[in-house]
Amino acid sequence: MNMLAALKSISPVWRMGLLVLSVLVIATIAVAVIRRAKPQKDFSELAARVRAWWVMAVVFFGAIAVSDLFSLIFFAFLSFWAMKEYITLLETRPADHKALVLTFLAIPVQYFWIALPGRGPWYGMFIIFIPVFMFLILPVRLMLSKETVGFVRSASQIQWGLMAFVFGLSHLAFLLTVPSIPGTNATGRTLVLFLVFVVEMSDVLQYIWGKTLGRHKIIPAISPNKTWEGFLGGIASATLLSLAIRFLTPFSILETIIVSLMITVAGFGGGAVMSAVKRDFGVKDFGSVIPGHGGMLDRVDSLCYAAPIFFHYVRYFHSWD
């Protein structure tokens, strides 16, 4: 009982930290047990994945605990790296060079709107900068390069990348700087923790359910590893798990379930869309920065979809302005 009281007295962010720590410890022990039980099978990729999760969890908590500015730089860097992975795989034309320079300049600018004080007036800029201004400016810059062959393809694929990896991911950063949700303990920080934890747990649990019980392929043409069992088991168990971290949110129990279903399904959509993109490029992973996982994009793909959905849900129903 004393333990529980002590747990309640620490801040939600630290409580979440302890929870993640225990999840990681359990996962590490589980992998060690499985490895001992079946020494003939190769679990090195699984072990590498769990190790990478330790690093990612530490980096992520570090990035959002230090300061707002530091968090913004961290998320801007995520967008930057994701965009790098994406354009490296694109078929670009020499004529695209200057437009691509603009594209990368748009990343710090998009995060700059979030850093500006007085969130009210700058929310508008944050929300239209890429879908309106960049959308109009980039084709003009491309047109000025005077190369018409492949023009539409270049304009479309660059804008698509900006929307998914810069606009989409920047919602996480905007959410993070929201001071507090009126009438609750929730802040932007706790909401980001909730969102990232539920979406990433859903990814992991889909993988586990799929590996153990997966029989019926859900989208064989896109990703032969995704199964109905993984999909349903993953979102159901992640949603159940989200109830344990309701203390991070302003949601009621029913609302937590609805929101979690929404973001895990959106996350699945994001992962599947990125699988289709990889198929198109003819690659298995977007990169190799994260051992066992692939590139940065392979890890944030679901968040690119879940973040804007979650953000606008909270903004609409628990308005902070």
Partner: peptide, 18 residues
């Protein structure tokens, strides 16, 4: 690999292709 994509002849600012 890709250096000429990042900073081709005649350009001043590199694009961060891997």
């Amino acid at each position: 690999v890709n250096m000429g994509r990042s900073l081709p002849k005649g350009e001043l600012i590199p694009v961060p292709f891997f």
